Every structure is written in C-alpha cells, then in structure tokens.
Amino acid sequence: MPYASNADLPANLREKLPVHAQDIFRAAFNHAWRDHSDDAEREAIAHRIAWAAVKHRYEKLGERWVERR
C-alpha cells in the first residue's frame, strides 16, 4: 500500500534511515506501486525498487546510512 507520509513507513525504516532517505524510499515505493499495479508481486517489487533508489544516494557505514559523496 502506498505511503502518504514518512510517518506511515515501517518503524524499522524510520529508525534506521535519515529523513531524506525516507523521502526517497517513500517516493520510489509509491511510484513503483502505481507502475506495477497489475503484478502479483507488486509490493515486493516496490520494496526492491525503493531500496535501490535509497542505495543510489546512500550507503550503509556500520549501523548508519550516510549520503554518498
């Protein structure tokens, strides 16, 4: 299901990702959700696309997600 705001994201994402990364995740997820409306694996696909979008701008260093340089 699409996320209306970052507050609607799963708790583990809100706790681990910086706010900007949450924005990226939410926007990418919502876009993928709309684009794959006919796919039985819609939610899984949207999550994979959203994580790929986050990893394009952020990387995990230890336990923290930081913006790529």
Results as ranks from 00 to 15, higher is better:
R69Y: 09
E43L: 11
Q22S: 01
R57N: 09
H56V: 13
H36K: 08
Y3H: 07
W51G: 02
A4T: 07
N12L: 05
A53H: 07
R68F: 03
E67Q: 15
R26T: 05
D39E: 00
L17S: 02
W33I: 08
D35R: 15
A11L: 10
E59P: 00
H20P: 04
R14N: 03
L13I: 11
A28S: 06
R26Y: 05
A52R: 15
E43Q: 14
A28P: 04
W33K: 09
V19S: 14
A7V: 06
P2W: 09
L9D: 04
A44M: 13
L13N: 07
A46M: 12
R68G: 08
F25W: 12
A21N: 06
L9R: 05
H31W: 04
E59I: 05
N6R: 05
F29D: 04
A40M: 03
H47C: 11
A11M: 08
K55V: 04
I24A: 05
I49W: 05
P18G: 03
A32L: 04
H31T: 11
A4V: 03
R14Q: 08
N6W: 00
E41R: 11
R69I: 12
I45N: 13
A27N: 00
A21F: 02
D39G: 01
A28I: 10
A50F: 03
D35E: 15
D23Y: 02
Y3S: 02
A32R: 08
K16G: 09
L17K: 06
I45M: 12
H56W: 13
D8I: 01
H36A: 07
L17V: 02
I49K: 12
K60T: 11
K55D: 11
S37F: 12
H20D: 13
A32N: 09
N6T: 01
L17H: 01
W65T: 11
R68P: 08
P18N: 03
D8V: 01
H47Q: 13
K16V: 11
Y58F: 15
H47I: 12
L61Y: 12
N12G: 06
Y58D: 12
A32T: 03
L61N: 13
R48W: 00
A28H: 05
D39F: 01
W33T: 01
R64C: 13
A11V: 10
R68W: 10
N12R: 11
L13D: 02
E43G: 14
A50W: 02
D35H: 14
S37W: 08
R26A: 02
P2F: 09
Q22D: 04
E63N: 12
R26Q: 00
E63D: 15
Y3R: 07
N30C: 10
G62R: 04
